[in-house]
């Protein structure tokens, strides 16, 4: 689809970028099919697959029955048989019914067949809170999938990263869970190359360089962190790392940064206990122990059920909580 005037003048939203990436890759690779609930005629509930069925037909952009395990399980079969399926699970909360297929089958086939059977699969899933959605539409389960051997997990936070990581995910020979932070879907536009480019899976991005403290985050929290950094006094120099890929972890970028700054705050939406911040914190103490000037801090969701939306903004880490943690860590 040609870019609209708005896209030409102001850039692409995250939704636009993924949509464009899907279209371009489907044109390039006839093995790709999209399947999921409402992804065809309706273009997906977030309109990420808008217009694709018109271009590629009902056989490649497929409205499936309402059954997540069925979507995941048949996508696994398609992938094993040489196709490149891109299933969409409508919200992260509905990964539950597909969990068995994803973790016990997609993730394990290469290993349990010693390479004879592989599952090149890109599972697209909107993730996270902050859009006043109903129950089970706002969770952040990335650590669960990062803890599953055989899966790669990515979560881009910008349109540019989203397109580049999507193309990498589709071309990856292994299953990739592609989390799309729904709070960022249409929150801003940015310049995105029209052509083909990839961002390697497993590579974090240093959003802003600094010397006093490192913040590590991903997904929609990147923007809360940026707001927090904006509020800090001018003489405080903070390095912000957007992980982009949850697994495999870009340990080098994190280690390099924390060895330089000696202080680290990790920010994520998911519950604190056993959240991915716990793993990062362990990595930092393994590799940066003698460089640390303060304990590593975590600003995260709480170990509770994600509240309904009246209280969701209190639950999610905001710039105020992040600023406080940064200030405390600097003063330690």
């Amino acid at each position: 689809m040609p870019r609209t005037d708005v896209m030409k003048q102001k850039g692409l939203t995250l939704v636009d970028a993924i949509n464009e990436g899907l279209e371009q890759e489907m044109s390039r690779d006839s093995r790709i099919v999209i399947l999921g609930e409402d992804v065809g005629h309706n273009g997906g509930v977030f309109r990420v697959t808008e217009g694709l069925q018109k271009i590629f037909g009902k056989d490649r952009v497929i409205d499936t029955p309402l059954a997540e395990s069925g979507i995941m399980g048949t996508a696994i079969g398609l992938a094993m048989a040489g196709m490149r399926p891109i299933p969409e699970i409508q919200f992260e909360g509905f990964l539950g019914p597909a969990f068995d297929q994803l973790t016990n089958h997609a993730a394990r086939y290469r290993s349990r067949t010693r390479g004879a059977v592989t599952v090149p699969l890109t599972v697209r899933v909107p993730v996270g809170g902050g859009i006043h959605a109903p129950e089970l539409h706002s969770d952040s389960p990335e650590a669960i999938y990062a803890h599953t051997p055989g899966l790669k997990v990515v979560m881009p936070s910008t349109p540019y990263d989203a397109k580049g990581l999507l193309l990498s995910a589709i071309r990856d020979p292994d299953p990739v869970v592609f989390f799309e932070p729904k709070r960022v879907y249409r929150s801003f536009r940015e310049e995105v190359p029209e052509g083909d480019y990839t961002i390697p899976i497993g590579q974090a991005k240093v959003v802003s360089e600094g010397t006093d403290l490192t913040i590590v985050t991903w997904g929609a929290s990147v923007f809360e962190c940026l707001a927090a950094i904006d509020k800090m006094p001018e003489d405080v120099s903070i390095e912000l790392i957007d992980l982009r890929t949850i697994y495999p972890i870009d340990t080098d970028t994190i280690i390099q940064s924390v060895q330089k700054t000696g202080r680290c705050v990790i920010v994520h939406e998911a519950p604190k206990t056993c959240g991915f911040g716990a793993e990062l914190s362990a990595i930092i103490q393994e590799h940066c122990f003698l460089h640390l000037k303060a304990p590593v801090q975590r600003v995260a969701g709480f170990d509770t059920v994600m509240p309904y939306y009246k209280l969701e903004l209190e639950y999610l880490p905001d710039s105020k909580r992040i600023s406080e943690s940064v200030t405390q860590t600097l003063a330690y």
Partner: peptide, 24 residues
């Protein structure tokens, strides 16, 4: 495919494989 230990999960894979045959 090799033996499938969990019960009843493999029929979805067969359906997907058959679907690929049909698509091609």
């Amino acid at each position: 495919l090799p033996l499938c230990i969990p019960i009843g999960t493999q029929m979805l894979h067969a359906t997907g494989i058959a679907w690929a045959f049909k698509m091609r």
